[in-house]
Simulated assay, not measured.
Amino acid sequence: MTLQPSRGADAKGDYPWWLVALVLLAIGIAVVIVVNDIYAQVFLTVVNGVSVTVFVTLVAFVMATLLGLAIALLGLSDSLVLRQISRFYIEVIRGIPMLVLLFYVAFVGAPAIVTLYNFATAPLVSAGWAEPLQVREVSLMWRAIIALTVGYASFIAEIFRAGIQAVDHGQIEAAKALGLSRYHRFRLVVFPQAIRVIFPPLSNDFVSMVKDSSLVSVLGVADITQMGKVYASGSFRFFETYSIVTYIYLLLTIGLSLLLRGVEKRMRKAPAR
């Protein structure tokens, strides 16, 4: 016997008691931070890493979205070579753990790029028009951003591919019949419809990147996790420190999830153009 969900619950939606519980918990923790000197000190220390976390997440996500879109378009091109290149990138990068990719880009990829740069600019260096680049001059933060970009682009490319292929092929043929170029077909017909399919999983990846940005702490980047790690190792207050770290990440991720969910609902209600 299969249990059928209540139609009333599906139509109206369950009341978000989980959100009420989270809000009450968040308020309770905020009160503890205000009245307890230890928690207040931990919070003031860890919160200094929020700006770094937000910066890394936003920059890496924008770059990953652009790269993912480009890879998806390669995968949908008429050229067999371009399609195979796209598939090769997606399958290889998705098979590498993000932490391993972070180490590889930071300690293998960055030195290799610096070596290539110095080789290419050797004539300019000899003429005194340029200075050789040192590996230590490449910021660890930007190495981490590049690693997150490369890693997430493979997942975002699949999101774009699925969304674009979900558009009715008949509408594309109609756009061709109207004489629209491939660019205008994509901009005016395909993308406005595909974005409704793309946005939910893309927003999930955005929230996931907020959490995965904590991996940059292994490179010593002063994000939320790194600030907590440094404070805990010096004070030995691991419970208080990582409770606050968890609290801040939950505020960021749940708040962002609710915001994106609201945008998604508006997109569903908005008439298709």
Rank of each mutant, 00 (worst) to 15 (best):
M1A: 05
G8M: 14
W18Q: 15
A21V: 04
A21W: 15
L22T: 02
V23S: 01
L24P: 05
L24S: 03
L25G: 02
I27M: 15
N36M: 14
N36L: 09
N36V: 08
N48R: 10
V59S: 06
V59G: 08
A60R: 05
F61Q: 12
F61P: 04
L67F: 08
L73Q: 12
L74S: 08
L74D: 11
L82K: 05
I85W: 02
I85C: 02
R87N: 04
I96E: 02
F103N: 02
V105S: 14
F107I: 09
F107S: 08
V114S: 00
V114P: 00
T115N: 11
F119E: 12
A122L: 04
P123S: 06
L124G: 00
S126Q: 06
S126P: 13
E131Y: 10
P132I: 10
P132A: 06
V135G: 01
S139N: 04
A147K: 10
T149Q: 04
A153Y: 10
S154Y: 00
V167K: 00
D168W: 06
I172W: 01
E173N: 08
K176S: 10
L180W: 04
R185M: 14
N204M: 11
M209L: 09
K211C: 07
S217P: 08
L219W: 05
L219N: 09
V221E: 04
I224E: 12
T225Q: 13
Q226A: 08
Q226Y: 14
K229H: 15
K229F: 13
K229N: 06
Y231V: 09
S233F: 05
R237V: 08
V245P: 00
V245Y: 02
T246H: 02
T246G: 04
L252T: 10
L252M: 01
I254Q: 14
G255K: 04
S257T: 12
S257F: 03
L258D: 05
G262Q: 07
V263K: 05
E264I: 00
R268K: 08
R268W: 01
K269C: 14
P271E: 03
A272T: 10
R273H: 00
